[in-house]
């Protein structure tokens, strides 16, 4: 295609975005838009799938049948979210097997929060409350994302996340109002998950390389710092109301900005975990790789069975 044709197509494309007209799979789009979306959607899918591991860790040890049924349903939802998202990535021409191989080789990233271990039952509360809470903050604006299939997948995901957050808050609230040991356990979980939850929104705006272009394309609707501030503003009072202390001595209500001020984030830790040196990075990716290896014969057998039956039908 000639350069002037491309710039004409680009102008039409940007006009559609500016007019809030959704982009659909067969529409013309700039290569960089396609690549950015494939990267973001597949990383998002990987996060949902890897996110099953820290919680799956506690399914067999849930304290009672009710909690166990709830946790199972929640983890099953995460699998579903991963599948909606892999499908959305495929509409852009991404090869599903290749995206998954990129996760296994370490080339593709997923949310760093899942590289922290789940040491006690209270972590199931902290994850639902804080991690799913932060995810909701990130995902609600994505329901208005310019790419149709991604936006539609996010609408389904957001409907389900709300149950996730509430069940987590119920778990942590119960512990926070329980025995002294239970309360300590709840506080300990908050201490360990608070800062990693704030890191989920990504680097500060000044250091975020993708934000500006993504906002022009309406893939992203708010900056990392805006979303992080919203999260702190809604979550800090929730902690207070159940008698837990946010592990940040600098956290303080600021009347002038009608929001909380909070302490600096340890970005060294963030980049260490992103770079593969978090407490559980290796364990998580190994678990995914093993799942694929161990399940390979099932994938092949099912396909062989289908082919054999099709051959019989046409014979």
């Amino acid at each position: 295609m000639k350069d002037q044709d491309i710039s004409k197509l680009e102008a039409i494309f940007q006009q559609k975005i500016d007019d809030d007209i959704k982009i659909e799979p067969n529409d013309w789009m700039p290569d960089a838009y396609r690549k950015t979306l494939i990267r973001q959607i597949s990383q998002h899918a990987h996060s949902e799938v890897v996110g099953m591991l820290p919680e799956g860790n506690w399914i067999t040890r849930a304290p009672n049948l009710r909690r166990k049924a709830v946790l199972l349903a929640k983890v099953q939802d995460e699998a579903g979210h991963g599948l909606y998202l892999y499908s959305a990535a495929e509409t852009l021409g991404a090869d599903r097997e290749k995206t998954i191989d990129d996760l296994h080789s370490g080339k593709a990233k997923y949310s760093s929060i899942f590289n922290y271990p789940t040491l006690t039952w209270a972590d199931m509360g902290a994850i639902g409350w804080l991690v799913d809470g932060a995810a909701i903050m990130n995902q609600v604006p994505l329901c208005r994302c310019s790419y149709g299939p991604y936006a539609r997948a996010m609408i389904r995901v957001c409907k389900e996340e709300s149950f996730h957050q509430r069940q987590g808050f119920e778990v942590i609230n119960k512990l926070a109002n329980g025995t002294v040991e239970q309360k300590e356990m709840a506080q300990d979980a908050l201490n360990r998950f608070w800062w990693p939850a704030l890191m989920m929104f990504g680097p500060n705006d000044d250091d975020s390389s993708h934000t500006e272009q993504s906002m022009r394309w309406k893939i992203k609707r708010n900056t990392n710092d805006e979303l992080r501030q919203m999260f702190v503003d809604v979550t800090a009072p929730q902690a207070e109301s159940i008698g837990l202390t946010v592990p940040d001595p600098l956290l303080k209500w600021n009347e002038a900005k009608e929001g909380y001020d909070f302490g600096p984030i340890d970005w060294d830790e963030f980049w260490q975990v992103v770079g593969g040196n978090g407490p559980c990075n290796k364990e998580r990716v190994d678990a995914r790789r093993k799942a694929k290896e161990d399940g390979k014969w099932v994938v092949e057998a099912a396909m062989a069975f289908a082919n054999k039956r099709n051959a019989k039908k046409t014979a």
């Binding site: 349903a73 099953q76 939802d77 579903g80 599948l83 909606y84 499908s87 959305a88 495929e90 509409t91 599903r96 299939p149 539609r152 997948a153 409907k159 389900e160 994938v299 099912a302 396909m303 069975f305 289908a306 039956r309 099709n310």
Partner: peptide, 23 residues
């Protein structure tokens, strides 16, 4: 509502039930 991968139509229906109609 979306798409999914399955080896045959029977499995596609079963997976669709799990992926798209949990609620």
């Amino acid at each position: 509502v979306g798409s999914l991968r399955a080896s045959d139509a029977t499995m596609a229906i079963k997976n669709a039930r799990d992926v798209y109609t949990r609620r």
